Amino acid sequence: MFTTLLAVVVALALGHLAQPLAVAVRQYGWFDQWMRWIDGRFPGDGFWRGRYGIALALLPPLLLVGLFQLALDGAVFGLPAIVFGIAVLFYAWGPRDLDVDVDAVVGTDDPVARHAAAARLWPAGEAVSLTGASLVGAVFRNARRRWFGVLFWFLVLGPVGALLYRLAALAAEGDDSHLLPLDTRAGARGLLAILDWPVAQLMTLAMALVGNFDAVFTAWRENGGATFALDAGFLAAAARACVRSELAEEADDETESGVTAPGALVASAPDLPELRDAMSLAWRVLLAWVAVIALFVVAGWVS
């Protein structure tokens, strides 16, 4: 757990303080080329072009990382394993900085520039929407993809888990994923849905604890969160409900304080308040996860 906590702190710090380094390191062109090479080697019908064919692309890099992980376990008081874990988590995190992408949307009034900035929050080829509800869902989808999915599977499986999540996301939704055979891509999306389900459940639980519990719980239950269906749509629904309730509470507090008249409140509200509040909520959820990890570390030291 201490390794995980240290790796998360370092990954976050480097991502914010050394963004050029993050951009330079987090390059996945090799994986796209690897998938294209496999596709060229197996042009006819066969395992690669079936639903489980994505395993051919995932297993070699994951096996290599797994062997390194096993080889470094316990060596030199665990220091090489810590460094390796930090390196893999930093590589798999992101790859883009979510704060930077959200600030780019909020920081411009030009409709064309805003639409182009918002497109970075949607998978390649999907329609972009600038409505408040859509932006809240996009923030939490990206938070799951860029932060929480990598972090959860790093907690469960170590470095190989972080890389598994990142490569599965690239195969399912990456810029070049449309080049994969249809059944192969469908298999990648199915794998990603399996990896996402526990992540979305724990994100929603943390959201309920740091936000409006009643609103989050109701939205979670009404949108299939209480079932085992591999659909993480309940996460976006819970986030929208939480953001709506928080914005409503802010408006009520300002109105009751007498500082702002109800009519002026709407005019003076910050641009895209849902996006701002969704980003704040995502950070609070991440801090809750880190706090839980820290508690496990302290409990381990005490025992």
Rank of each mutant, 00 (worst) to 15 (best):
residue 250 E to C: 08
residue 95 P to Y: 06
residue 129 S to V: 11
residue 154 F to W: 12
residue 274 E to A: 14
residue 156 V to S: 11
residue 20 P to T: 07
residue 4 T to R: 02
residue 263 G to S: 08
residue 203 M to W: 01
residue 109 D to H: 09
residue 74 G to L: 12
residue 261 A to K: 10
residue 254 E to H: 10
residue 201 Q to Y: 06
residue 295 L to W: 09
residue 295 L to M: 11
residue 8 V to F: 05
residue 138 A to H: 05
residue 74 G to Y: 10
residue 179 L to E: 01
residue 239 A to I: 03
residue 9 V to G: 03
residue 277 D to I: 04
residue 204 T to F: 06
residue 272 L to W: 02
residue 277 D to G: 03
residue 79 L to M: 13
residue 96 R to H: 00
residue 235 L to G: 03
residue 28 Y to I: 04
residue 255 T to R: 11
residue 127 A to L: 13
residue 171 A to K: 07
residue 284 R to S: 11
residue 107 G to W: 15
residue 204 T to S: 13
residue 9 V to H: 03
residue 124 A to N: 06
residue 32 D to H: 07
residue 201 Q to F: 11
residue 268 S to F: 10
residue 170 L to C: 02
residue 233 G to Q: 14
residue 18 A to V: 12
residue 225 G to L: 10
residue 166 R to C: 14
residue 57 A to L: 14
residue 76 V to N: 08
residue 73 D to C: 03
residue 115 H to S: 13
residue 141 R to D: 13
residue 90 F to G: 00
residue 203 M to P: 01
residue 64 L to E: 06
residue 207 M to T: 00
residue 124 A to S: 12
residue 43 P to R: 03
residue 123 P to C: 12
residue 91 Y to C: 12
residue 156 V to T: 13
residue 38 I to P: 03
residue 203 M to E: 01
residue 85 G to H: 02
residue 216 V to Q: 10
residue 166 R to M: 15
residue 288 A to I: 08
residue 175 D to T: 13
residue 88 V to G: 12
residue 87 A to G: 04
residue 51 R to E: 11
residue 259 V to H: 09
residue 117 A to W: 00
residue 232 A to D: 04
residue 130 L to P: 02
residue 146 R to K: 09
residue 48 W to P: 01
residue 138 A to N: 04
residue 103 D to A: 08
residue 297 V to F: 02
residue 98 L to I: 07
residue 117 A to N: 00
residue 232 A to F: 05
residue 279 M to P: 00
residue 114 R to E: 01
residue 6 L to N: 06
residue 170 L to D: 00
residue 54 I to E: 04
residue 302 V to Q: 06
residue 253 D to G: 09
residue 230 L to Y: 14
residue 180 L to V: 10
residue 189 R to K: 11
residue 176 D to R: 15
residue 264 A to K: 08
residue 261 A to Q: 10
residue 1 M to L: 05
